[in-house]
Design a protein around this nucleic acid. Structure first.
Lengths: 217, 217
DNA sequence: GACGCGCCGTACCGTACGTTACGGTTCGGC
DNA sequence: GCCGAACCGTAACGTACGGTACGGCGCGTC
């Protein structure tokens, strides 16, 4: 009922050592933000700067590789639509919502998004596109089949899956991500996330749940 | 029925010349993002670096002043709740939604948020707090009285104004801001914004509009 | 019309950091 | 045991940029 599949194989030919280096860079990114230096990465990863440049070309290459490396680790649960009833649909939606809130409130996601947002301004690289592709769009790819299945099963009612997805997204994320990115302290406990996921799911069902009885409008 | 009031008077003792300099800095910020240099600002504003440092202290001071200067210009419409009926409530909500989408999709807002997000990582200054205070929180301060008035008038039904506001916020903004910040091209025409504002308002009313007939749950 | 003040333009200083170069060490292959 | 490749640690280089100093100029004041 629930299995994990990578979107794109971005782990192309990365040795264990290289992954370790990228993990070090990632930790540094979380701690220091975009002003991490090549020297700091080399020291933290116990490798030479020469190696960093040989492997990743330049600073932007290292940053890109780091972001892709982390992005390749973010997986959203995938659910198939067999034997769908209201209970399992609700559970699936709540799980998506919960996973997503968990992701966007994690230190790693915040740091990565901060860097990507910063770089999106000066269009040197496409960190923003990478983050978007592995975040928001990956989520949509996973969720839409569930929505479609829900519609097939007569549980949901909507015209356009993309629009329905965006409504769900808005109900789940609300102002959380932008507030976190802007530095607002916003403690999201496990319980709060669960509650928000349930609320968002109920709201979504209220908007797009198929009417059971006869209904105008 | 609709008047404009500043939140905080941050235009404290800014001469016209200083405002012009900040406008130049702002334009540069929109064009070049955070890697704008003091030299560039001085050249664009036709002033000397010495003056910049005398007026704003250092680079962060200039950035902060620029952000506050722009923030002080962003005003969300204020609406009072007299003679509220469903039509005027709907119109108010749509106007809020439309204004907000207009703001967050503007080049200026995107540039400012990018800078603020970047700086929120390395907590040197509080640009993030400034942006948040004049954006998301200012919106809440303006909208909540309308929601409360709607509840008083028996048009809306919700337990907590803050939660209701966040729901509305989510329905309006959805994934727009994060996508724009991450560099996604996302053309928001006047018409599209109007449509989204109407849709979000209708969804909000569907969730929180007071039930007219007898109704369980 | 001399003086002082505020500001422009620009040259200059110091530093941080990206990038490169190089000597020393480990290690697998023969 | 020797060779070369890969890599570590560090020193060195070049540059961009934040910050400062200084000469010149317009302008209000006496």
């Amino acid at each position: 009922m629930l299995h994990i599949v990578p979107d794109i194989d971005t782990s192309e030919a990365l040795t264990e050592r290289q992954k370790a280096v990228l993990d070090a860079a990632l930790r540094l990114l979380v701690e220091e933000g975009d002003q991490l230096t090549m020297t700091a990465v080399a020291r933290r990863a116990s490798c030479s700067k020469e190696t960093l440049y040989k492997w990743f070309g330049d600073r932007d290459g290292l940053l890109t590789a780091t972001v892709q490396w982390q992005a390749s680790k973010v997986r959203v649960a995938q659910v198939d639509g067999k034997g769908l009833d209201l209970a399992s649909l609700t559970a699936s939606l709540e799980r998506f919502a919960s996973d997503w809130l968990q992701v966007i409130s994690s230190d790693t996601s915040i740091a990565l998004n901060r860097v990507a947002v910063g770089h999106a301004g000066s269009g040197k690289d496409n960190l923003g596109a990478v983050v978007l592709e592995n975040g928001r769009f990956a989520l949509a790819r996973r969720l839409k089949p569930v929505l479609e299945a829900g519609r097939q099963a007569g549980l949901l009612d909507f015209a356009d899956a993309e629009t329905a997805f965006r409504t769900f997204f808005g109900l789940v994320a609300r102002d959380v991500q932008i507030r976190l990115l802007l530095g607002d302290r916003l403690e999201l406990t496990e319980a709060a996330i669960g509650g928000d996921a349930a609320r968002a799911t109920q709201q979504f069902l209220a908007l797009h749940g198929a009417k059971t009885g006869p209904q105008g409008l």
